[in-house]
Amino acid sequence: MPVLSVITAVAPGMHEHLPETYESLRTQELPAGWEWEWLVQCDSMDEDHRAQIRAVLPGDEPRLSYRASRTGGPGVARTMTLARARGELAKTLNADDRLAQGSLMRDIHGLSQPDVHWAASRVIEFWPGGGQRPHSARTPPAGRVTSGELLSSYWSPTDTGLLVHPATLCVRMRTLLALGGWMALPASEDTALMLALDAVSDGWYSEEVGLLYRCWDRQMTAQPAHFEPEERNARRRIIAIRAEALRSFKDSFRIRGAQRS
């Protein structure tokens, strides 16, 4: 039976929305014959932090697997889950976000297309008090996203960011492993992975909403350190340089969209 591995990194003190995250996963419908597993990783070995997360997690074994690792940021925590992942596909799910209905079904459909190695979807931001708005009006057309399209839009003088939101990423597990998981960065590691994938393979974009993205004062991307100019510019540059290097070696990867037998 094919498995989709849903991967959630939890920073210390960021566990309070996990029950909502789980509920959005529990109610997902998958194609016949598929199942999901939820790999939750605490980004700290501190026993108090580990216990706080354990206290809010549901009793859904064996579909739920919970572990902890030394603090290294969300990219390190996510990469550590790959040691126990069983899935043919890997899906990122932040600890404070919620999947929209049908999200996993659409991801699996997109990744069933020939030579497609990643899938993403539209995002709705939701705010304290119940307000909602689209994350961005600038997205690719629905369907196949040609390799290199994201990089060309990201590495531009206007600094308008990615055409797709990396928090919606679903990827072939073997391709994720071949690229080394998430990049070792203090932030933007999901953007780095998305651009690495774009450099070596085509993707698939769904115009239907795939993720409800929580915007609140404690999220990591709302903190002043995330926008400190020197570090931010360095992150952007190394992300783009790496993607360009991967693109130059694309033929060496010989990635093929072999379909599930």
Rank of each mutant, 00 (worst) to 15 (best):
T191N: 10
R235N: 09
I238S: 07
S153R: 05
G148P: 02
V209K: 01
H165D: 14
H226K: 09
R174T: 11
I239F: 10
S152K: 10
C215V: 15
S152E: 13
P157M: 05
G148M: 04
L185I: 05
A120G: 05
R232Q: 13
R214F: 15
G131T: 11
A120W: 01
G130S: 04
V123K: 01
F126D: 00
Q223A: 08
S112T: 15
E231H: 10
L211H: 01
M220I: 11
A199C: 09
W118S: 05
N233Y: 11
A178P: 10
S153F: 07
A234M: 12
H135A: 08
L197W: 03
G161H: 06
L150A: 03
R133W: 00
R174N: 12
G131C: 06
R235P: 03
E231I: 13
A187E: 07
A187T: 08
A245G: 09
L176H: 09
T158E: 13
M220D: 11
P140T: 00
P140R: 00
E149M: 09
N233Q: 14
L177S: 12
P134L: 09
R144Y: 07
V145M: 14
H226W: 15
I239N: 00
E125F: 00
R218M: 09
E189K: 06
R172Q: 15
S121L: 01
R133H: 06
R218G: 14
G131H: 15
I124K: 01
L163C: 04
W182L: 10
R237M: 08
P114V: 00
T158Y: 11
P114A: 07
R144V: 07
F126N: 02
